[in-house]
Each structure stands twice: as structure tokens, then as C-alpha cells.
Design a protein around this nucleic acid. Structure first.
Lengths: 244, 244
DNA sequence: CAGTGGTCTAGACCACTTC
DNA sequence: AAGTGGTCTAGACCACTGG
């Protein structure tokens, strides 16, 4: 707890607790120190402690029980959301090595669907990225991404880095921070081109997933269409169920 | 703002703001009154105002911008998460009437997969519910749910009410509150029985979605397997992307 | 500069759990 | 009764935004 540190105290406390949990010093379903205890140990006010704990609860690391204490969540609850929305992370989680080949990076007008999803104005264009994603060198998905131009100019310039990097993290570093994703999943047959690039029979059904990503204000920042051949990849989604 | 009301002040304030947003008095992307303004108007402390606002931000109704103000989210961001995890809600959202037919409600030992997912102990059983879900009387999904027994005894007793009701809301009322859901989606062909009940050709591919639901502590409270024929239903998922 | 939200304090009282 | 988290107050100072 460094008061000279520019990072907020509640944030520092969060990091300390996260580390203790990740290091295994605090096992799942065991209680962490009580709030007054944390107040005394780290010399901060209770409000500060509660802000740290409340955020960790929202992030799925802790849960509270009135009158009993604050407990550590199971790893399954801890690893929620973001990791599984990224294909590369999911591949890594399954013990495989993610990779990718950027086939196309261009500016296009975009189909009506694309323009609608990205709410493009008349004069605006879309950046189109086409990739074949691989796991241990085996092609497992054909992905086409569209981003609004000129808003995502930085992405267009850095497209070459997308070999194995994550598009989402590059977007975040360009100020396009994903907040909500809407996904639509259908069973479908591959197009001729998809079958060829993924090296699958043209009659092997797979999943066609379209995904529109929005930032915190609800503005669309990306639209993607992905084909996953049925024999190569199982599509996983983890989501937190809202309260009310 | 009734101080005699047993409901907390921050909660009452949340409800007031929610109502104003839903009623359209506060349009998307417009600023709500500032925090000092709310303090004065509702005669509560700033901490109380901030607790209300922070929760509404987490619920996707508001977003904050440092130095500028607090703004109303777009409806698309507001209607996140829970509603779309419920098939009935999704059907309703598309302007169709949800329905369902409960085919089976029984106690079983369950396959290894089921027992593993629900972490059943040797002597424990599973409640098995089989349903055909409909939209405007058209069958759109074949769903098999498993719940831990005896933990979900109440569900077993109330199974008949599941005609059109939501299993999730019934679970919540029985103290089995869903918190996290893990879904796995595959393209697949229907079984003979599914094809017959859904009245689809046996070679029409669809989606096979398995879903394990956990409560806040990470204990599994339900496991389900659903088949959606490709021609009848598009599977939708909306999720919030985690920050870090 | 004034106004906004972001962080923080030092208290207080209450409701729930356990013994 | 003692300990836990849940709610609430009345202040304070800071960082960011806009004119």
C-alpha cells in the first residue's frame, strides 16, 4: 500500500488480493480476512476496502455472504467472460498453439449488412480483414472482420501485426474498447472458398458466427463473420447471468 | 425517497432512475443530473448516489465519462445478458409467442457426463426434464435439463408449471440462482427422436448446445442439452466483455 | 475557471450469522 | 454477545473536461 504510488489505494488492494488468490494462498470457498481486518492491516478506510472487494465480486473472484464473510470463488467462475471471447485465448486454454494468416487487409464500402451493423455514414468506409486462424498449424476458422473507417485507422495501419495477435487487444490499445458483444450462431455449410482454405469437404456442416461488438456507449466498433468447421472446433461461450 | 421504506435509499434511487430511463424521459446518450444535483434533489449523501449509479453502470443502463457526466446507454446495451439466456424471452423479443410441452419429468442416475457436470455424489440422483419448446406453436427446440437431486427438490415438485414458464426463474425462486453459464455449441444432425418431435428431415443440420449453469459460489445447479434445428431458430448470445 | 466524476476518510447504525 | 457484511452520512481533495 504505497500512498506515494499514483495508483489508487483500492486498486492496489485489489491487486494484492488478486495475487494472493492466484498464488493459491487463498483457496476457493475459504474466507478472506474480514473488512475490519483489512482496514487494520492495510491502514485504509473501510470504504476503500469495500470498493476493492465490490469490484472483485463483480469480476467473479469473490462472493459475499451477509453475516458470514467474503469468500474466494472457484477458478471456473474466476475465468469468465473475456478470455473465452477471444479465439486465441480459447485455443491456448485447450493446450494448443494459436496462429493465424492474414489474407486480406483492405478498405471497402461493405455490404448493406456490414454498413448497417457498423452504422456507417454515406462517405465512410470499412476496413476488411480476412484471416485463417489455426491451432497447432491446423486451420480451424475462417474469419472476416469489419471495422469502421476512419475511426479505426490505427488498426488498418497495424494490420500486419495480426499474425497471431488478438484483434480485441489491438482495438483496446487504439481506444476501441469492447464492452458488449452480440453473437448470432447458425449451423451452415462452408462456401467453396472456405472449404478450400480450411481443407474440409464441401458438405461438412459447421458454425457460422456473426458478432457485432460495441463500446461502452453502444457504438459499434467491429462486426465479424466466422466459419468454424464442425469437425475441428467446438464453440464455447461463457457468460454471466444478470441479476434482475 | 421514503426513509420509512424498508428498501435501502440507494435501491429506491436506482428504481426511480430506471423508471425515468424506461419511460423515455432520459434518452440514450443524454446526461442524467450530476451527482451533486442528485444529492440535493433526493436529500441523500453522495456515497448513496454513487452506489446507485455504480450499480446502474454495472447493469448496463448508464456509462460515465470523467469530467463530462453520466449518460444513458443505448437500449441495445441495456438489454444485455439475462434476457437472451432465456429461450422464452428471446422468442418474445422476436414477436412470437413462446410455449412448451413437458414430455418427461423423472429422477434418474444420469450419464457420466451429467454426473460429472453436476458433481453428483454417489448416492445423489438427477432430475431429468424433457421439453419441446415452441414459438407460435411451431416446435423450435428439443431440450433436456438435468438438475441435482435432492438439492432441487422444489423444481421436481413444481415441474408441471414448466409448460410455458421459465426454468431459470423457477430455479431462482427455489434458491438456485444462476450466476454463470458455460455453453458449448456444435453443428450436428438431429437424433431420430428429435427429428420426429421437431418434424424436420433427419438430414437437416442444427445446433446442439450444452449448457452448465453455476451459482455464485461456483456450484453447478443445472446442465442442459438443447437441439435447435437450423431452419427454425437462430441462436443468439449477448455477453459483456470483461475489462482486464 | 467552474463543473464533472474519481478517490478517500472516520465515523455511525443496522441486519444477519454463529455461539 | 460478538463478529460479519449492508447501508448511510458529511465532509475532503484530486483529475479531467469544457468554455
Amino acid at each position: 500500500m504505497e500512498r506515494s504510488n499514483p495508483l489508487p489505494l483500492y486498486y492496489q488492494l485489489k491487486e494484492v488480493l488478486k495475487q494472493q488468490i492466484r498464488a493459491g494462498h487463498l483457496a476457493p470457498h475459504t474466507a478472506i480476512p474480514s473488512e475490519p481486518e483489512l482496514v487494520a492491516r492495510y491502514r485504509v478506510s473501510r470504504a476503500t476496502v469495500r470498493q476493492a472487494l465490490t469490484e472483485l465480486v463483480h469480476e467473479g473472484l469473490l462472493y459475499r455472504q451477509h453475516g458470514k464473510g467474503t469468500f474466494v470463488c472457484e477458478p471456473r467462475v474466476q475465468q469468465t467472460l473475456s478470455e473465452l471471447t477471444s479465439l486465441s485465448e480459447d485455443i491456448r486454454r485447450r493446450g494448443k498453439r494459436p496462429g493465424g494468416l492474414l489474407l486480406v487487409s483492405e478498405l471497402v464500402r461493405g455490404s448493406e449488412t456490414v454498413r448497417e451493423r457498423l452504422r456507417l455514414l454515406d462517405e465512410e468506409q470499412a476496413i476488411r480483414l480476412v484471416r485463417v486462424r489455426t491451432a497447432d498449424e491446423v486451420p480451424i476458422a475462417y474469419e472476416v472482420d469489419y471495422l469502421p473507417y476512419p475511426r479505426a485507422t490505427g488498426i488498418y495501419q497495424r494490420a500486419r501485426e495480426l499474425g497471431e495477435g488478438s484483434l480485441y487487444s489491438m482495438m483496446a490499445s487504439e481506444g476501441l474498447t469492447p464492452y458488449i458483444a452480440e453473437q448470432n450462431v447458425k449451423a451452415a455449410l462452408p462456401s467453396a472458398r472456405e472449404a478450400e482454405l480450411l481443407r474440409i469437404p464441401p458438405d461438412e456442416p459447421g458454425l457460422r458466427v456473426t458478432c457485432t461488438t460495441f463500446d461502452q456507449t453502444g457504438s459499434p466498433i467491429a462486426y465479424s463473420e466466422v466459419f468454424y468447421p464442425g469437425s475441428r472446433y467446438e464453440y464455447m461461450v461463457t457468460l454471466r447471468v444478470a441479476k434482475s
